[in-house]
Structure formats: C-alpha cells, structure tokens
C-alpha cells in the first residue's frame, strides 16, 4: 500500500502522532539553533529561558489577568459581531432584495482593514475597552455577514422546493430549511472568524493599551526580553488552538448529521 494515496484518510492515532511530531521537530529545531549559539539570545530566546520567563510572568506579573482581559476582548467583540452579523447574513442570503441593498456596501467595508481604524477609534472611543472591542467588531462583522449570506444563498434548491410541496410558506422555508441547513457551515465560519479576531485583538493591544497579552509583548520589546515576547506569542497560539478544538468539538456534537 503506497504511503501517499490521494484523499486516503489516516487513522485517528496516526493523525495524533503526526501532528505531535511536527511540534516536537519544531521545538527541537528551535532549541538547536538557540542553545548552540547560532542565534544570539538578543534575537531569539531559547526554549528553556522562554519557559522560565513564562513562569515568572505568571508568578510575579500576574499574566493570568492579561490573558483574561485579552480573552474577554476577543469573545466580547466577536460575540457582538456574530449577534448582528448572523441575522443580517441570513436575511441577505434568503431575500435577494436585501442582498442587493446591502451586499455592495458590506463588500466594500470588508476590505477596510480593521487595524487602520485604530487611530480613529482611539480618537472616538479613547484607549479603553470600547476601542478594543470595536476593532474586533469591525474586523469580524462584515466578514461574517458576507460568508453567512453566501452559505444561506447556496441552500439546495431542491430541498426548498420539497419543503414548498410539503406546505411550507416563506417563513417556514427560512426557519425550517435555510437555517437548519446552513447552521453547521455558519458555525464553521464563526470558528474561522474567531481565529482572525485573535489577530485583531493583539494589534489593538499593541497600540495605546495598558493590559492584555499584546501590551505585555510591547512592554517586553522595550526590555529586549525576547523570552517574554515569545512566551506571549506561544500563549496566543495555545489559546487559539484550544478554543478552535473546543469549537470544532461543539459543532460536531451539535450537528451530528453534517459530519
């Protein structure tokens, strides 16, 4: 049996082993380059130093609070965006006049980079939480609207027709065909956008902020502490990975018919 057969699935065990081994390789390479002195600590701390500074971050600098604040900002901005964007996206996907009305404007807004709004948002909302949440909101809301509209619009026509012949009216089609049919993909879209929200929050925290993971990374730069910077970045990665896995698990639990 050849090792590389197109589209052939791998067993869950090998999947886990393969995924973990890349992490292992990555850390080995990192340790190799830094501990051997090929890369000086000023540019890149070695894994052990990174771990040690990480521990002091938690014990002496209350890093857990920074993490909590950042998580809250991501979740807050993202949930607000989802609450507004999903209904709008569904309305656009279901009703073509709504789509014709909103789609051009939303498409335009989608290309406005959220980070470019930071200076303006600081002017409008100061450097407080409202500004951080707005960056995430602006970065997520238009993306979600458009993707949800596409998903809902791509509902199988034959299912809609079948529902009509079973006596459904317009409202029934939306509630009982478009929504349940699109739900798993909408959930997957939210999972994707949540990942992007993480990148926006750090950018927002790099500018005019006194707390959060991004602020800690900024502070470390002043102290030239590459260990702290890398630890902060790794933390974001780990939180992102965990939330992604949770989201995925939840989706599979909620929509067993789709997976």
């Amino acid at each position: 049996m050849p090792l590389f057969e197109p589209l052939k699935p791998v067993s869950p065990r090998s999947r886990l082993v393969l995924g973990a081994s890349f992490f292992a390789l990555f850390f080995l390479a990192w340790a190799g380059f830094t501990l051997s002195g090929i890369i000086p600590p000023l540019f890149l701390a070695d894994p052990l130093t990174t771990l040690k500074t990480g521990v002091t971050l938690f014990t002496e600098f209350n890093f857990l609070r920074d993490i909590g604040i950042t998580v809250w900002r991501v979740v807050g901005g993202f949930v607000a965006a989802a609450l507004i964007a999903v209904p709008l996206g569904v309305a656009m996907g279901a009703f073509k006049p709504v789509e014709a009305f909103l789609e051009p404007f939303v498409s335009f807004c989608r290309y406005l980079p959220a980070s470019a709004f930071i200076p303006l948002l600081i002017l409008w909302a100061g450097v407080g939480e409202a500004q951080k949440l707005s960056v995430i909101f602006i970065g997520s809301v238009f993306q979600i609207i458009l993707m949800v509209a596409v998903i809902v619009g791509a509902t199988r026509r034959d299912l809609v027709e079948a529902a009509y012949t079973l006596g459904a009216d317009g409202g029934g089609i939306v509630k009982r065909v478009l929504l349940p049919g699109a739900a798993p993909q909408i959930a997957e879209t939210l999972r994707l956008v949540l990942g992007w929200a993480w990148t926006y929050v750090i950018v927002a925290e790099l500018v005019g902020s006194s707390s959060g993971i991004g602020h800690m990374i900024m502070d470390s730069q002043r102290l030239l502490d590459t260990g702290q910077m890398i630890f902060g970045i790794l933390c974001i990665g780990v939180i992102g990975l965990v939330s992604d896995l949770l989201f995925k698990w939840l989706n599979q639990r909620m929509y067993p018919w789709a997976f």
């Binding site: 027709e161 012949t165 009982r176």
Partner: peptide, 27 residues
Amino acid sequence: PGPDRGMVFQSYTLFPWLTVRENICFG
C-alpha cells in the same frame, strides 16, 4: 406549490438534518 400536491423527486431530497421520522413529520 401546496400540500395538496405531494411530490417525490428523482434526486434525494430528504432534509439531511432531520431523522427519518422528523422528515416524515415535516408537513
């Protein structure tokens, strides 16, 4: 279209998110 004219299509048009029983109960 209306519920007085039931239809079965050549393509499979069961609602994938409903069980057999729930599909039958749709109308």
